[in-house]
Every structure is written in C-alpha cells, then in structure tokens.
Design a binder for these strands. Structure first.
Length: 362
DNA sequence: AACTCGGGGAA
DNA sequence: TTCCCAGAGTT
C-alpha cells in the first residue's frame, strides 16, 4: 500500500517537468506575485486570469503600490473578473501587510491563513511555493485527480470530503519540493485528467488508477448538486440629460456587485411592461426628481444575465431629462458625464450595455 | 452544513 | 443547455 503513493508522487513530478506551461508566476518566488496570482486564479481559469495578473503587476509592482492605491482603481482593474470581494480583500490585506507587518509577508501556512481572502488552498500554495513548506493544496483539479486515481467517491463538497482529500494530499505531498508537487497535481488535472473524456488509454497512471480499472472515470469526482437559481427582474433607468450626463449609483450593503456602479435600478418580482413601470411609485419618484420628460424601452427582448445562483432578467429604459441636480435630493447617486462613464467600475451586464448603446459611443 | 459570490469557456 | 474553473466568507 506504500507503492502507489510513491509511484504517484514520482511520476507526477516527472510528467510536470516535461509538460508544464510557462506561466509568469512560475518564474518567481516573490510572495507578493504568488499571492496576487493565487487570488486572481481562485475559481478562475488560467486563460481568463492571466491578462489581469499582468495588468495588476504592471500597475502595482509591489505590495506597497497596491496598498497605496484607491479601492476605486483596484475595482476598475478587476472589472469583468467576477467575485469582487476578492478585490476588496486583496486591498485590505495589502494595507494590513504594509501597515502592520512592515511590508513583509507571513512565511508559514498557519500565519498566511489569518490573512483576509486567504483560505486553506491559498495559504498552502504560498507556503509551499515561496517557503518550501510541505502544505498540500486541494483545488478543483486535485479533487478530480485524487478521486479517480485513488477511487474515492466521498462527495468533494462536504465537510467529510474536504477533510479526506486534504489528508490524502498531505500524505502524498513531496516533502523536499512541495511547491513543484502542488503545481504538478493541479497542472495534471487541468491539462490531462480533465472533467470530460480524459485520454485514459495514454495516461501515465492508467496502470494504478482505480477509476480507470472500475470504469468510474465518468462518475468521479462525486459532487452534491447545488441549489436552484433565483430569478430577478432588473429595470435600469438610463437617464440622458441635454448636457450629455447620466446618473450612476454605487451598490452598497450585501449581495452581488458590492461597490460597483450601475444605473438607477428598479427591481421587481416579475417582468414589467411599459404601462406597469410608469405607474409604480418608485418610478414616479425617480422620474420626478430627475426631471424625466420621456421614457422608452431600449431592449425589446429581455437580456438574461446568468450568475452562479441568479438569473437576471434585464431591461434598459432610456429616460430623457432636461437637467437634474442630484446632490440635493439623491446623495447616493452620482452625476456622470457620458464621456467619462468608462472611468467607473461596473458589472459586465452594464459594461455590455454601455459598449453597444449608440449614444455612449464617441 | 448550507448559502452566497461572476463570468466565461468547453462540450 | 450543463459543468466547472489554481475557493473564501458568512450565516
């Protein structure tokens, strides 16, 4: 029973050294760069995160630069990447490291775990890659590889599954070069032991793989199905003044898109017709304050924006106004010159509208 | 233990 | 369409 872990460990690293991709964070052990890359790559494919990593490192070469930046600027740079709390935690932790730790990163798994936005995976990744600490990482790739090779059908998204896979990975991790082992197990899952139709016939592990022997490759890893998605109906009021200005407001409180900007929003339980919208008190108050003269529907067919747990059925309403003064009546709303609208961090739903709406062009 | 938090790519 | 990605924080 000692044979399989040894075989797995040795061959995995050999495979990695031949097949690994050259990625920018693989040519450094600077904890700032590694930390930044790991935060960006949480629940994010390498191809999607890579340009963001390059832009962040160019804009903020050191943790001091990041700490000194405004949250607005960081969120704008993060725009489109999703899971925006990562950006806010990134900023918070940068300031913490500069202000409280004299700009020096913690060097152990245990200490790294105390940083906001750094959980078990990220603490293990930084500790192993930067400081050679044998802390095993378990991400989506590792769950897949280990569940198949070792034939483990415990659901991965349960307390028991998380514990079991972490223990197995910890048992397997190379004590002498944990950083390379960790990256190898993830790379193998991402590039070879893929979710759908992996090429098992040519796999270096097909002689020891439990799932291959028992034809369970298609059913492992086991994952408990998630809850159903919630439907929401968004009506954005895009105000246009004669002075070429519009109104944006910043989302606050809990929920999606915290701190990002959007047009004034009227949310309802069901889809709204023109006649239903204009008799709503919420709409009447808004249009009165903003001196709305005329309103028309921009998108005839609903725009469906899909998030993990929500489907947003969206309509944009174009409201023409002959001028407004938001400071007095709506302190939470911001008057924005249309020419400067791209300065604001907005959700992709809003960005898509801005880039296709003719009035906003040029 | 269950929920929430984005967006995009692949099949 | 469905699945899932170099997960973490909150309830």
């Amino acid at each position: 029973m000692l044979l399989k872990p040894t075989f797995f460990r040795k061959n995995l690293i050999s495979w990695y050294l031949v097949h690994k991709r050259e990625l920018p964070w693989r040519s450094t052990r600077d904890p700032y760069a590694i930390w930044l890359s790991e935060i960006i790559l949480q629940q994010t494919r390498v191809a999607q995160g890579l340009p963001y990593y390059e832009r962040f490192l160019r804009a903020f070469p050191t943790v001091e630069d990041l700490a000194a930046a405004s949250e607005e600027k960081i969120l704008k740079l993060w725009q489109g990447l999703g899971y925006y709390s990562r950006a806010r935690n990134l900023h918070f932790t940068a300031k913490y490291i500069v202000d409280e730790l004299h700009g020096v990163f913690p060097t152990t798994y245990k200490e790294l775990l105390t940083l906001k936005g750094v959980g078990d995976y990220t603490a293990s990744a930084i500790a192993s890659i930067c400081y050679n600490e044998p802390a095993a990482v378990v991400d989506g790739n590792v769950y897949r590889v280990l569940s198949r090779v070792f034939g483990i059908s415990t659901p991965v998204n349960t307390t028991e599954g998380i514990k079991q896979f972490k223990a197995l990975a910890q048992e397997l991790v190379d004590e002498k070069d944990p950083g390379t082992f960790n990256q190898a197990s993830m790379e193998f899952g991402a590039r070879y032991c893929v979710p759908q139709n992996p090429d098992c016939k040519s796999c270096i592990f097909n002689s020891i793989c439990d799932a291959y022997a028992s034809e369970l490759v298609g059913t492992l890893p086991v994952k408990l199905k998630k809850t159903t998605v919630r439907k929401r109906y968004f009506n954005y009021i895009v105000v246009l003044s004669e002075a070429h200005k519009t109104i944006l407001q910043q989302r606050s409180g809990k929920g999606i898109w915290q701190q990002l900007y959007e047009f004034p929003l009227i949310e309802t339980k069901k889809d709204l017709t023109y006649a239903e919208l204009i008799v709503m008190n919420e709409f009447k108050e808004l249009s009165e304050e903003l001196c709305v003269e005329d309103i028309s529907l921009y998108n005839d067919t609903l725009i469906i924006h899909k998030l993990s747990h929500q489907h947003l059925y969206t309509r944009f309403w174009i409201a023409e106004s002959n001028g407004f003064d938001v400071k007095a009546s709506f302190p939470e709303k911001t008057e924005v010159a249309i020419a400067e609208i791209e300065e604001y961090a907005v959700p992709v739903l809003i960005e898509n509208f801005i880039s296709e709406f003719s009035v906003f062009k040029l």
